[in-house]
Amino acid sequence: MLGSFAVLRKQSLLGDAISHAALPGIAIAFLITGAKDSNTLLLGALVSGLLGTFWIRGIITKTHLKSDTALGLILSLFFGFGMLLLTFIQKQPNANQAGLDKYLFGQAATLVESDVWLMAIVTGLCLLVLFLFWKEFKILLFDKDYAKTLGFNTKTIDILITSFIVLAIVLGLQTVGVVLMSAMLLAPAAAARQWTNSLSKMVLLAAIFGAFSGVFGTAISASQNNLSTGPVIVIVASVFVVVSFIFSPSRGLLFRQIRFIANRRDLEQQKTLAFMYHIAETHEDISHPHTIKILNNFQGFTRKTLQKLVDKDYVTIDGTMWSLTQKGFEKAANLYNQQHKTDE
């Protein structure tokens, strides 16, 4: 859901970066407390995720490095540091450390009831904030300068959105793991984007897609043994995206191709008609018959287009000869005029 904002803000890969950046936070939280209480670990993840995000922002605004470099940099550096800490922890004489790496790849099955409650609460909180600041988010998203002139504190709202994205990611880490979190954030939103241009619908659709891929993914992974949940969920989500890409009515590839072909047919038909018109112009009698042979592919002629013209009663065919009808002649003349008009 929050992914919608990330996608629209062109910060898609932020999710990836944050989920990696959360690792050292988990490790440090564990080092400090020495316990594997999921709440403190999440807190650590949250802090280091936020730290990473703001460092990324600092790099982008203060230096000439581009956002992709900043993202890749923070992602790999934080993750490497996290790995260092994890291996360091493993050498510590503390038997408690097993299972920290569960956070890396996620294991939905390890979730306990309290985790689920925590997630539910945070989701509710996200929803609440989303409703409260809907208008502000929307303006900030599409026209930042306008939001500023209206007197909104863009910085605060910005930080608010970012923090919530980070929060959502950190929570999701337990379920699908570091690597696949970015897909969970992105895929539903990218799929939803194809179906609608309205933000509210998009957010709703993204939530539905996300929930569906969660449910389906879990179901599939439960039905077979040896299938980890995270990857299956991601694949289901990716399938949603592919389907949306192809079949969405207004933006989808399939319909675009169909429209494209239809347009080309129209154009070819008009070209043929115009060519006929130019020939007919030179004759006294507009319905003077000509052979079909003089029509060729360059004029957009195909058997089909000719048949269509006949169907529309613009042309009559007699054996291998064709002739324009009065109606066809007028149509062609107007066609020409209209084209001129639009040219001007």
Partner: peptide
């Protein structure tokens, strides 16, 4: 349909 970074984010997790 989507921007470059989204495209990257979709392809590699899949």
């Amino acid at each position: 349909l989507v921007k470059e970074d989204t495209a990257i984010g979709l392809v590699f997790p899949a």
